[in-house]
Design a protein around this nucleic acid. Sequence first.
DNA 1: CGGGTTACTAAGCGCTTGCTTAGCATGCCA
DNA 2: TGGCATGCTAAGCAAGCGCTTAGTAACCCG
Lengths: 196, 196
Amino acid sequence: MLSTMTTTARDRLLDAAVAAFAEHGFGGTTTRDIAARAQMSPAAVYVHHATKEELLFAISQRGHQEALDVLARSYAKVDAPVERVAGMVRDFSEWHARNSRIGRVVQYEFGALSSDHRAVIADLRRQMEQHMRDALVAGVDEGVLEVTDVRGTARAVLSLSVDLVRWFEPGGAHTAAELGRLHADLAVRMLRPSAG
Amino acid sequence: MLSTMTTTARDRLLDAAVAAFAEHGFGGTTTRDIAARAQMSPAAVYVHHATKEELLFAISQRGHQEALDVLARSYAKVDAPVERVAGMVRDFSEWHARNSRIGRVVQYEFGALSSDHRAVIADLRRQMEQHMRDALVAGVDEGVLEVTDVRGTARAVLSLSVDLVRWFEPGGAHTAAELGRLHADLAVRMLRPSAG
DNA sequence: CGGGTTACTAAGCGCTTGCTTAGCATGCCA
DNA sequence: TGGCATGCTAAGCAAGCGCTTAGTAACCCG
């Protein structure tokens, strides 16, 4: 029961911090606000995390790792390059829509991390871009994708998914699944060889 | 000379605030930091702007208006739908690359605005999306673009340009002009009717 | 049962925050 | 020439900040 309670309190704190950071930004959020959202005293924050920045790092690392896992799983699941890229974009967009608050925090508060923590996160980001580049290169090698600037195009394809955290709201014009399908379709059209 | 000096001091303050907000976020920036960057005393900030939030609003309004003007000019300059969309994406991406710090502030600090100011900015954003939707619809009507979800696709096309403020650094792998051309090419491929 | 660990709180320390006040030089207009 | 507006600064106020300290209740293991 103790370790269950511990995990619960820690997670309540992480959830509260995600909500607060997404709403007011890292610099605009007080540790008192986080504590209140988690229904604890201000000092309780420091039982589980040494500083406010470590709370952000925990959120950022978990968020990036989850997103990377989504991308890696979608990469590994399919061999045919076109269908593989489509699946990656679909799942990556859908994850960002379903986790848009977390996405906003991890994308926009990168600069608030300490330089050590920033290096850890930057490495996770590099891995995401590498997965997408690998997927593009495989398609080019098989002649089913046409990409002249692999680095720039990989970024552009990922932008489609990432940027939706800026405006996505559950209950809006699109569901997460619809956005995933739309973006996958647009990405495939972006990458297919021009006719002729 | 007086009005020149006034404009200069006001603009120095705006520039300083853009740099500070882009680096630390709105909540993480102190008015003392802004004043120091503009080489003034902390109180001088309040000679030109009533509150820190009004400074952000001035930056956000100016930034959004400039970006909207870029889009509107590119829309008006060309009639042929495919070339028009290509020009809009090229110029919009290039502007965001050349003004990535301003772009970061106006995109990521939207939530820090007062609700009155937020309404003004939201209207400018609506106009941008409307311009892109109009451009897509014109192409669909002429049969030279294929778009099933106009609203979602317009957002996706704009995402290509906007999202680059998240990572673009002058002196990186791409120049602003190169990114504009790349994104314009990708957008056109996204929107062209499938062969057959 | 007793020593130690864990999860927490009430209170608060020292500092920083957004913003204000009082005052001063400069330049313009009557 | 005198009165007033403008653009600025030095000093500082009340409030709020991140984080610490001292202490308590509950549980765990020998």
